[in-house]
Design a protein around this nucleic acid. Sequence first.
DNA 1: TTACATTTGTTCGTATGTATA
DNA 2: TTATACATACGAACAAATGTA
Lengths: 256, 256
Amino acid sequence: MGRVTRGFLAVGTRFDAGAAIGGVLYKDVKRAMLAALAEGEWKPAEAIPSERKLIERFGVSIGTLRKAIDELVAENLLIRHQGRGTFVATHRMEDHFFRFFRVVRQDGYREYPTVRLVRFRRGKADKSEAVALGLSVGDAVLRFTNVLSLEKTPVMIDAITVPVERFPTLTEVQLRERPNTLYNFYQDGFGINIIRTEERLRATLANDDDADLMEVPAGSALLQVLRTAYSYHDERVEYRVSKLNTAHHEFTLSQP
Amino acid sequence: MGRVTRGFLAVGTRFDAGAAIGGVLYKDVKRAMLAALAEGEWKPAEAIPSERKLIERFGVSIGTLRKAIDELVAENLLIRHQGRGTFVATHRMEDHFFRFFRVVRQDGYREYPTVRLVRFRRGKADKSEAVALGLSVGDAVLRFTNVLSLEKTPVMIDAITVPVERFPTLTEVQLRERPNTLYNFYQDGFGINIIRTEERLRATLANDDDADLMEVPAGSALLQVLRTAYSYHDERVEYRVSKLNTAHHEFTLSQP
DNA sequence: TTACATTTGTTCGTATGTATA
DNA sequence: TTATACATACGAACAAATGTA
């Protein structure tokens, strides 16, 4: 005989609930927590309720709760600190910056880049942007380009496209004056949390524009990174084509 | 008051043992299991002892054992199958092939490559090989080159270097006739398990040799991948420089 | 087909250790 | 010092998958 309720779901016996919902309780808890994150009930940098409160809220045991949290921690959505609490991950420099900026000097040295905004324009999604962002060709998008420098030397060009729908009030000035990382800015300014990216890499040759911005000869070999960035529920919110000069740097698959 | 022994370690009370060894019991169990794997007590594709036997062997509770196994599973060293047992991971095609072969057609289609061995020679480690493999310059190495094709078209060149010391009996014929993946061959033929790689990516231009092997014009942009492959205990056993033609394919960071 | 033994997976709960404010 | 929070370790009970008799 199962329990009579599933606590937060309250849908009948343990067994019936299992058949009716996800079958696995900790997965249901995880989903509920994911919903609390996606809906903004728990905000970046804030502590979520303590384990004791969460087991009351969800009506599960400590082990089940911890298993749900374990997975959210593994996915970098939450960060646990013994003695302090469990926190919603942010994109502040200290936290996750090098998870998304994988450029390293060839001797392994890592450094924060300086960013210069060189283009900002409204436009209509082309085919590749529409495919990448799940839009229709012609939908309104914002395109902007950053030049990233390391040790004062331009090393990477990021050509970024976002749907206007998700960033309706975004202005060039805001972008230029943002105090922190771009993904942190998405987070603070628009409530959009980038939690995952998919990236594909190619080699390409510098065109005149690249050559100009990156101070290399046209025809140089560049590493091209095609990135789609995802928010909660696999929602695509940014498409980015980066070009990296690998004369002195490289793209690393190792996390620091 | 702690327990009197730590089972397989038997080094005193729980607390003392903690201070003396790793401090965390499940980490000790994990280390012991890692040792059993590294020493070949548990061999690839075989089942390790059941949880019940392991908790007897290590003198820990089921929860502690499972936490140790959880981490080894997360690191892809073990694979659990409910109802069957827990198995040592292998490099057979079905298992982990696409963890190490990250080349995908631009439309996302994945395919096993065909491999052609085009060079095999003994030599002395140069600077970069020595650094990558933790050898001294001049140490004996084997170098061999594979051309990988997808849909009958050459797409990637792998220039591979391994220390002779780790592969003393390796011959060109063996390499040419291996029935399975290269890492599976290392595993079966030399007891060497590749469990992890570090990769760095650059863009480069095709030289005459590349152009010849890959049937592209010299000067084409190619994606270069510098890979160091590790066995247990972070031992470096292979250094590989790959060049990929990204005209129709790309290097993906997504796992299938 | 059925029944059973074996193995891992999930859920429960308790006690204690460790880090933090 | 104290209270709070997460971390580790224990183990029981049952569920689900698998292979075999």
